[in-house]
Amino acid sequence: MNITLRVWRQKNSDAEGRMVTYKVEDVETDMSFLEMLDVLNEKLTTAGEDPVAFDHDCREGICGACGVVIDGVAHGPETTTTCQLHMRSFKDGDTITVEPWRAKAFPVLKDLVVDRGSFDRIIQAGGYISAPTGTAPDAHANPIPKADADRAFDAATCIGCGACVAACPNASGMLFTAAKVTHLGMLPQGQPERAARVVKMVNQHDEEDFGGCTNIGECAAVCPKGIPLDTISQLNKDLLGALASGNLD
């Protein structure tokens, strides 16, 4: 099949960007979206034009490196990562618009590559359990009800790709933050730091210039790992609880 691509091109973070149109021919339906971009880049390189920069690594949907907005939807028409989106989801002759994640907290570095360091800083603020190496009790010391373990796991599957932010009309990073708060908050090991964690992470989230959450739900609708929206409510509950108990740190 033949595809027309409109791709955001931007030389570096300071440069002005623009949409550029390319034709990609002989696209096979079994190709992944990124393999289709590989084909474009091989063609551009051979023609002496700068290839399109995009982030990607594992290409099996788990590292969270890849992610672009395709025709207005983060990661495109299937609910999966961009690397696991295949060209069979498109038709011959389609025009596809490809843009980077747009958020002030994710500045564009080049073309479709953005800087998601703000996510790391949210984790630094408190997205962990303080368990220095060697201090752990036996793994069976603390049985955990399966329901809690499962809920923690569902939240823990977040891959930090940033689609939630890209899709949110407010450019909020609340689903990402809430996933971590819920993952750790559901486990007995996570209790001692629970109140302080949520306050510190939300403060950091706000400091990074993410927008506020208004419970629209676009984030969960595009999340390739299906992080449930109720994690945000859990975060709110934990936060109100923490604030009520005077944990204002």
Binding site: R6, W8, M19, V69, D71, G72, V73, A74, T79, T97, E99, R102, A103, K104, A105, V108, A167, P169, N170, A171, S172, D209, F210, G211, G212, T214, I216, G217, E218, A221, V222
Partner: peptide
């Protein structure tokens, strides 16, 4: 929140579409 959202988005998308379907949105 509105002004924060505008600031937080920065550059606008060329194409926007809801993943939840138009009526839900």
């Amino acid at each position: 929140l509105w002004s924060r959202a505008k600031k937080a988005r920065g550059h606008r998308y060329a194409v926007t579409k809801s993943a939840q379907g138009a009526s839900a949105r």
